[in-house]
């Protein structure tokens, strides 16, 4: 195997990795916001909210990410939504946003289920005890249920973050210059179909491994705080 192409092409991998991480951060942020709203809708007593959230979650989880990506990529312009190109953020900001929005819409459905399960895993007696003391529902949720749910949610949310990093490679299809896209470019330019993929795989692994260690540290920190 010959990795000498790295002398000329290493910036392709570094810039691609930057886009991949940026995309993942954006997706986790927006996906979490979507997920929190969907989860709250799904555990609410309002049948309409519950129904909308359920349909959203089932639909997203029951269709391929690739199809969702294309629907957003070709669909948003058709209904008149254009993201402006912002040169400071790369030449294809509109594409980047389409990819990020598609990934977020997808991830939001999974995050919603993680949050819902985390909240519902908190013993019902905790809420009842809080309510029996006279604490209103919102306050009980905030002080008692959510802090405990957070501990259930964090590990699963970490896994979802890592899944997002890996699945984000799919956006190379719509021309976003992420790690996968740039690795492809290097393959074409150097006529080496194999080695650039090894480099890309290693970089993906370093990114996900680092995040999973960071999340593990955060979890341990929280557990010693609560001493449970």
């Amino acid at each position: 195997m010959d990795f000498s192409f790295l002398t000329n092409y290493h910036m392709f991998f570094i810039n691609g990795a930057k886009i991949t991480i940026l995309l993942a951060l954006f997706t986790v942020a927006l996906g979490t916001v979507i997920g929190v709203f969907l989860a709250l809708m799904k555990i609410s007593k309002n049948i309409l909210l519950k129904g909308v959230a359920s349909i959203y979650i089932e639909f997203i989880r029951g269709t391929p990410l690739l199809v969702q990506l294309f629907i957003i990529y070709y669909g948003l312009p058709m209904i008149g939504i254009h993201f402006p190109d912002i040169p400071a953020l790369g030449q294809n900001f509109g594409d980047f946003m389409a990819g990020a929005v598609a990934l977020s819409i997808n991830s939001g459905a999974y995050v919603a289920e993680i949050i819902r399960a985390g909240i519902q895993a908190v013993d019902k007696g905790q809420m009842e005890a809080a309510r029996s003391l006279g604490m209103p529902h919102g306050l009980s949720m905030k002080k008692i249920v959510l802090p405990q749910a957070f501990k259930n949610i964090l590990p699963a949310l970490g896994n979802e973050f890592i899944a997002v990093i890996k699945e984000s490679a799919i956006v190379s299809i719509i021309g976003i210059h992420d790690l996968m896209y740039n690795a492809d470019t290097v393959r074409g330019n150097t006529f080496q179909p194999f080695e650039p993929l090894i480099v890309a795989a290693l970089i993906y692994f370093v990114i996900t491994f680092t995040f999973s260690k960071l999340i593990g540290m955060l979890e341990r920190r929280m557990n010693t705080d609560a001493r449970t």
Binding site: D123, G125, Q126, E128, A129, A130, R131, S132, L133, G134, M135, P136, I144, P147, Q148, K151, A226, T228
Partner: peptide, 20 residues
């Protein structure tokens, strides 16, 4: 109901102490 509950203490079989 929250105001009324403030004047009614309840003790449960499973204690239900706030675990965190």
């Amino acid at each position: 109901i929250n105001k009324l509950r403030e004047n009614m203490g309840m003790v449960f079989q499973q204690f239900n102490l706030f675990s965190h």
